Computed example of a mutant assay.
Amino acid sequence: MSNKNKGYIPVMLTPFEENGAVDYKGLTKLTESYLRAGAAGLFANCLSSEMFELNEVERLAVTQHVINVAGGAVPVVATTTFGGTVFQQADFTKRMYDVGIDAAIVITNMLAGAAEADEVFEENVFKLLDATNGIPLGFYECPDPFKRVLSAAQLKQFVDTGRVIYHKDTSLDIEQVRAKLEVTRDVAAFGLYDAYMVHAVESLKAGAAGLSCIQGNYFPELIVWLCENYDNTALADEVARVQQFFIDHMDVMHAVYPVAAKYFLQKRGMPIATFTRRDVGVFDEQVKQRVEVLYDAYQQLFQHIEVSGVDGLPDGGK
């Protein structure tokens, strides 16, 4: 995970059976599809994975399964902080690291309350660093239960410890992204991955290591293509078209997510259910129709650009 090579890090879904149990066969197929699409790493046990609705045993088991399927082909990271004291969060971080993750991802809102000052948060970050015995860490500006966005100065002081190798940015602010990249630019082992596809091309050009966005749970190969071609002058028109595609369809991809994404993958041939443990709203006929329109628009996009299909998704992206 480095800013020298642009890559896509999927925020992985967790497939469930209709009875609510984790669907490990579906998780195998889903993991394989991310890898075949060209993912540079895998972010297991994240918000898209419904991490807050998994118990500790499931969080460990799901992450272990992803690691086993990946087989060392790419790094695997996972969220490890879910509240409690700093030392309780450090304990689960060590348990998760023992299953074989490459970095433990810290949720920024779990180390200080919404009303607590930055100084409290920063003190707790350093306590966690001290309590986790050299484990490589990353930060995730998770929007639930509230969003705590790091400043460039905060990120720099954490990265300067040599322990932080990953940052998933959800600031939605390209100027904040640029500021964070500027102060960490010389740290080769660190990579910032942007979650906001509206300014994906700008972020990559500014020096982001890649993208880590929910849109990859609809068409992972398209995110990989953008990471590989964002600065290809021969494909400038196609890059602009892809960037505009994400801007135009941002709302529908976030509506009733992750149910909508699971439905979209079903349409592409992925054998997973749309079941979700999260209360994300009703996937009614109106939402379904909007996803159908998105599917048609995606197919039309492929008439204008060359993107490899994905084994395991029978429509091949077309």
Results as ranks from 00 to 15, higher is better:
Val69Lys: 11
Ala70Tyr: 02
Gly71Ser: 13
Ala73Arg: 15
Val74Leu: 07
Pro75Phe: 10
Pro75Leu: 12
Val77His: 03
Val77Asp: 01
Val77Gly: 04
Thr79Val: 15
Thr79Gly: 14
Thr80Phe: 12
Thr81Leu: 09
Thr81Ala: 07
Thr81Cys: 04
Phe82Asn: 06
Phe82Lys: 08
Gly84Ile: 10
Gly84His: 07
Thr85Ala: 07
Thr85Ser: 11
Thr85Asn: 03
Thr85His: 05
Val86Ile: 13
Gln88Ile: 05
Gln88Asn: 10
Gln89Met: 13
Ala90Asp: 03
Asp91Glu: 13
Asp91Gln: 12
Phe92His: 08
Phe92Glu: 02
Thr93Gly: 03
Thr93Val: 04
Arg95Thr: 08
Arg95Asn: 06
Arg95Leu: 07
Tyr97Asp: 00
Tyr97Ser: 05
Asp98Met: 05
Val99Trp: 09
Gly100Trp: 02
Gly100Met: 07
Gly100Arg: 09
Ile101Arg: 02
Ile101Met: 08
Ile101Val: 12
Asp102Cys: 08
Ala104Tyr: 01
Val106Tyr: 01
Val106Pro: 00
Ile107Glu: 03
Ile107Ser: 05
Ile107Gln: 13
Thr108Phe: 06
Met110Val: 06
Leu111Asn: 05
Ala112Arg: 12
Ala112His: 14
Ala112Glu: 03
Ala112Trp: 09
Gly113Cys: 08
Ala114Thr: 06
Ala114Ile: 14
Ala115Cys: 14
Ala115His: 15
Glu116Tyr: 14
Ala117Asp: 15
Asp118Lys: 15
Asp118Ser: 14
Asp118Ala: 15
Val120Leu: 14
Val120Lys: 15
Phe121Gln: 11
Phe121Val: 07
Phe121Asn: 12
Phe121Lys: 11
Glu122Phe: 03
Glu123Lys: 13
Glu123Trp: 03
Glu123Phe: 10
Asn124Trp: 09
Val125Leu: 05
Val125Pro: 01
Val125His: 01
Val125Phe: 02
Val125Cys: 13
Phe126Val: 08
Lys127Asp: 09
Leu128Tyr: 12
Leu128Arg: 08
Leu129Ile: 15
Asp130Val: 09
Asp130Ser: 14
Asp130Cys: 08
Ala131His: 00
Ala131Gln: 01
Thr132Arg: 07
Thr132Tyr: 06
Asn133Pro: 01
Asn133Met: 00
Gly134Gln: 00
Pro136Met: 02
Pro136Ile: 04
Pro136Leu: 02
Gly138Trp: 01
Gly138Phe: 00
Gly138His: 03
Phe139Asp: 06
Phe139Gln: 08
Phe139Glu: 00
Tyr140Cys: 13
Tyr140Thr: 10
Tyr140Asp: 08
Glu141Tyr: 03
Cys142Met: 11
Pro143Asn: 12
Pro143Met: 09
Asp144Trp: 14
Asp144Gly: 12
Asp144Pro: 10
Asp144Lys: 15
Pro145Leu: 10
Pro145Gly: 12
Pro145Ala: 11
Phe146Val: 12
Phe146Cys: 12
Phe146Trp: 15
Phe146Glu: 13
Lys147Val: 09
Lys147Cys: 10
Arg148His: 06
Arg148Lys: 12
Val149His: 05
Leu150Asp: 00
Leu150Trp: 00
Ser151Glu: 05
Ser151Trp: 02
Ala152Tyr: 06
Ala152Pro: 03
Ala153Trp: 02
Ala153Gly: 14
Gln154Leu: 05
